[in-house]
Write a protein that binds this DNA or RNA. Sequence first.
DNA 1: GGTATTTGGTTTCATTTGAAACTATTATTC
DNA 2: GAATAATAGTTTCAAATGAAACCAAATACC
Lengths: 171, 171
Amino acid sequence: MKPNTSRKTRPRPGFALERFVPYRLSVLTNIISRTFGRLYGERFGLGIPEWRVMAVLGRFAPLAANDVCSRTAMDKVRVSRAVEKLRRAGLVEHAVDARDRRRSRLRLSAAGHRMHDAIVPMGLAAEALLLDGLTAAERRTLDKLLDKLTARAMAIAPAALDPSGPDPGDT
Amino acid sequence: MKPNTSRKTRPRPGFALERFVPYRLSVLTNIISRTFGRLYGERFGLGIPEWRVMAVLGRFAPLAANDVCSRTAMDKVRVSRAVEKLRRAGLVEHAVDARDRRRSRLRLSAAGHRMHDAIVPMGLAAEALLLDGLTAAERRTLDKLLDKLTARAMAIAPAALDPSGPDPGDT
DNA sequence: GGTATTTGGTTTCATTTGAAACTATTATTC
DNA sequence: GAATAATAGTTTCAAATGAAACCAAATACC
């Protein structure tokens, strides 16, 4: 089965990582995440988790941390830490829900709103730049593909992976 | 449980994170990475970095760590650590290039080849499952989109982010 | 009422990660 | 042919991450 043990780097017929969709998605996403993360980080001192929290609070407020979790697709630990950072930076205000004192009521502060409104156009511009070379049809397909693939991936995932899952570790 | 968009939570016109392409890509990729990572991890005790190294070594061998970096789009630290794990597991053999004694010559061991050949069909099956609901046209567009967007993202990235960059820290 | 269970959120701990520093070898320059 | 720069790869250190433990408040159950 191996008559040709050559000295040089022989490309074997087998498996082509560079065509493997999960790999390619990962590479693409990592490049984008680093680029955008640096964008937010350099000019605003925010990481991606913080930016996501600000994004949803800028649109829906007030929210409980829990709602932020579902809307940002981040787990509660990340949300908790991001909120804490934003609070210390004076960008987010935290209050306790009067009806259910476990729940928090999070909203952007005035400074938070100003920063939010400054970041959003930047993000949208960067997104536009990214999508620049795509035809209108390709954009539509991209949109559809993202929805389809995400739904599909969530269906495939062994359910324990679902971040909105029932906190299986908690006693 | 009804979605808590009742009284106070007013959706404002502003920015819709849930439509933002970088965000959606990140969510999709995270789900897939965790699913695949768990797949490899549970049955073979490998993480994604290790699996990637095995994948390229299964196809091109021998490679220097450097070549693995470029082919897997991982930085040298990750590659170094993944190779070390694989060596300890007896899946990868490490030799020194005679012509340039800094360079390594990495290849799969016999056991590594067996594991590689066992994993590949599993990965391909999972990929097929993921792409299951897509039409042939959508698949073609996906393929094109991944290439286009990756090229675009690399072009946009401030160059310092390029993982194949000139090791700016190393003085 | 009182106890058990669930839920919202934080903290702890071990692992992963990457930037920068470091070692060893080769290439360059004078 | 030293001195210097560049390259391959490893190690160190600090930050990010997530699973599980944890605390506090609210519900369910009796």
